[in-house]
Amino acid sequence: MPPESDGEKTEEPTPKKLQKAREEGNVAKSKDLSDTAVLLAGIVALYMFGGYMLAGFTDMMTARLNFSETPFPTINEIVPFLVQALKEMARILWPLFLVITLVALGVNLAQIGLLWSSKAFAPKFDKLNPIKGIMQKFSMKNLVELIKTLLKVFVLGPVAYYVAKAEIDVIPGLLNATPMQTLEVMAWIVFKVWIIIIIIMFIVSMIDFVYQKYQHNEQLKMTKQEVKEEHKQQEGNPEVKQKIRAMQREMVMKRMMQDVPKSDVVITNPIFLAIALKYDTTEKSAPYIVAKGQELIAKRIRDIAIENNVPIFQDPMLARQLYDSLEVGDEISHELYQAVAEILGEIYRQKGKM
């Protein structure tokens, strides 16, 4: 098996890449699924509210087009006449519009969630590139769209034909039916045809949705180098981070050395370790470490302590325990309290503080 090239997009998109694509409006979405859901919503709404809408249109046509009682509107009256007619149509059709709108919103929310991207509306001048446009015509995406279109034509057409043909025996019986009865039967045949078509479209759209998710993921895949660059950006440049850590260590060291003269005692082992302790009840409830270090830093702590007349106490075991278990600023633990208290007590007695 040949080794993978760093230029091949073999890596799954990172959360940052997915979020950036989402902010740009680049999300996996099946238009067929949305169209099928809206079509189904429209058919169901017509089935549920068809009687209400038919009665409304009948009343409106009777009232508006009965020019035997009401004269035909003049030129000055035609605009108010049309506006009033549109208002009445809106009143009749509002259940259909409401159901379609809610279903359209629901399907889009189910596919992509809440999303508003101003970048999606920004003009994309690269689309004006004729060469790129020609290449897109022969892309895999357009090939899939062509296959779906052919599938709809060669599958949905015959299905609609055979479903309608199965109901052809009903038509002769409509010769003696009233116009309303004829309309109801024809509406039922159309409804049945559309339900079968929608079921097939729903299956196709679900397959399309899975494909759109797959294609979107493939489109956003990254090369190994892109993943490395993104990790480097998130974690920061190693050289810069190293300089920052060095500066932080320097600041901590400087602060420690400034606090050594204020300490009450420096405990050593006696050469390799040095720990400066301070006991101030206004700051902490127990003695705490103001500085610690080993080797050269320990020597520097001892030198500053000598320069500032800070007592130095040699206790190798206690020095090791303090160094290993506590950090600068930490109060001494309960296990070490007795040993530290005895040292501080002895120092205070020597200074005459007790």
Rank of each mutant, 00 (worst) to 15 (best):
H231W: 06
L33M: 12
M60K: 01
N66W: 10
K165H: 01
I200H: 02
K29W: 05
K278Y: 03
S68E: 14
N269M: 07
F97S: 10
L128A: 13
F67C: 03
I100V: 15
S117C: 04
I197K: 00
D169P: 00
I301V: 12
V155H: 03
L102I: 15
F57M: 14
K127N: 13
L128S: 02
E77Q: 15
R255W: 03
K241M: 10
M140Y: 08
V185L: 02
K119S: 12
Y211K: 10
E23H: 02
Y52R: 09
K254Q: 15
K278N: 11
F313R: 11
E239Q: 15
V227R: 01
I147V: 15
L336M: 09
E239F: 02
V185P: 00
P95R: 07
S68T: 12
M89V: 15
F202N: 05
R255M: 10
F81I: 10
L54R: 12
G352H: 04
K221C: 09
E218R: 10
V210C: 05
P15E: 10
I78T: 15
P80S: 06
F72D: 09
P95V: 03
L82M: 12
D169H: 09
M354F: 11
P80M: 05
Y279T: 13
L86Q: 04
S118V: 12
N26L: 07
L128E: 08
E167A: 13
P13V: 00
G42L: 11
L277Q: 07
I196D: 14
M257Q: 03
N66R: 11
E11G: 03
F81C: 08
G106C: 12
Q219E: 14
R245S: 05
M251H: 06
L336F: 05
K16A: 09
A21S: 09
I312D: 04
I347S: 11
N129I: 04
T62F: 02
F138N: 08
A291T: 13
G113I: 07
V266Q: 04
Y348H: 13
A305L: 08
M251D: 02
S139L: 01
M317R: 10
K232R: 15
Y52K: 05
V185N: 00
E145N: 13
V155F: 06
A104W: 01
E184C: 00
V107K: 04
M206T: 07
D330G: 04
Q233D: 08
V79K: 14
Y162E: 02
F125W: 15
L82Q: 05
T70P: 01
Y161Q: 02
V153S: 12
S118A: 14
E342G: 06
P287D: 04
F67I: 09
L93W: 01
M354K: 13
I198A: 14
W94A: 10
S285W: 03
Y323R: 04
G25S: 07
E218A: 08
T282V: 09
P158Y: 04
K29N: 09
A21N: 04
Y47I: 00
Y52H: 14
G352R: 06
F154T: 13
P172E: 03
Y162D: 03
V210W: 05
I147K: 01
I343N: 09
V328Y: 03
K119N: 10
P287E: 07
A104Q: 03
D6I: 12
S30T: 05
I244M: 14
P172T: 07
M140V: 15
R255Y: 03
P13R: 00
G51F: 01
